[in-house]
């Protein structure tokens, strides 16, 4: 019993150290990517296309709908307490600081995290990774780094679009149901939006992007021989990405409220 527990512990510590080593290897290769990454630049472009551009429709629709719901509910309820202007800080807190980065992360986990883990897992099973090594291409530099950079940049950009659509686009939808004066709305949104909100949002999306990409790549490479391992590792990648994103979010919020 004690021996089992000890072995379990040692294995988990080993896995954690391996994961950290993997992360630092990706970071190291990322630094070199800008200098000699001409072969991987196309992969990066395609990664941003798949992860960022193709998710834009989903993200913008969700952002507009969420923003409109918050405005409509808030405009209906808050003035009853004499706090009608509270709608703007609420909108910014939800869209910019909290749900924006988190919802974008969830969508990216579902779309690209699974795709990356599956693709890299297939590459391993089909010996494509060995083919890259035999050709002289480092799979970390060529496969992992463009995906890492691509997902991180895409999540950051999608989060910006989410904010844009959530704060501005939703206003136009609201006009059909509960008209608000445009000048007043935008003036108050801009007045209540602070640089620390934007910085917090950007940091969150960057951290979530790093987590999702590294975890997905890691579990993709964990596939060894059989194609049946691919879905197993993909599920693990999704689960671990969710958990780590939530923990990171809590940690960033804690730091944010400590600082401000």
């Amino acid at each position: 019993m004690l021996g089992k527990l000890g072995r379990w512990m040692i294995n988990h510590i080993k896995a954690l150290l391996y994961g950290l080593g993997f992360f630092f290897q990706i970071m190291k290769a990322t630094i070199g990517f800008a200098r000699k990454g001409q072969v991987g630049k196309r992969v990066l472009t395609m990664q941003i296309l798949f992860t960022g551009v193709q998710a834009l429709t989903n993200i913008s629709l969700i952002a507009i709908a969420l923003g409109a719901v918050i405005i409509i509910q808030g405009v209906g309820i808050l003035p009853q307490f004499g706090q009608g202007d509270l709608i703007y800080p609420i909108l910014i807190t939800i869209i910019t600081r909290e749900l924006g980065p988190m919802l974008c992360a969830f969508i990216i986990i579902a779309r690209s995290g699974t795709a990356i883990a599956t693709e890299i897992g297939s590459n391993v099973v089909n010996h494509e990774i060995e083919a890259y090594i035999a050709t002289g291409i480092d799979p970390i530099s060529y496969l992992a780094v463009p995906r890492f950079i691509g997902v991180t940049i895409s999540l950051l950009l999608l989060n910006l679009y989410f904010n844009f659509f959530g704060l501005i686009g939703s206003y136009f939808i609201t006009q059909f149901i509960h008209p608000i004066q445009a000048a007043e709305y935008f003036r108050k949104i801009l007045f209540n939006l602070h640089p620390e909100d934007i910085v917090s949002s950007i940091i969150k999306s960057l951290v979530f992007g790093i987590i999702i990409s590294v975890v997905s790549i890691y579990y993709g490479f964990k596939v060894e021989q059989s194609s049946t391992e691919i879905p197993q590792m993909t599920i693990k990648a999704v689960g671990m990405s969710f958990v780590l994103c939530m923990l990171a979010d809590a940690f960033i919020v804690l730091i944010y409220y400590t600082l401000y």
Binding site: N126, H127, E130, A131, I133, A134
Partner: peptide, 19 residues
């Protein structure tokens, strides 16, 4: 190592083309 890779190649049993 890159020089070694440049001057060597591997023909795989299952082709291993990049899909």
């Amino acid at each position: 190592l890159l020089d070694f890779r440049k001057n060597s190649s591997f023909v795989f049993q299952d082709a291993a083309l990049w899909a």
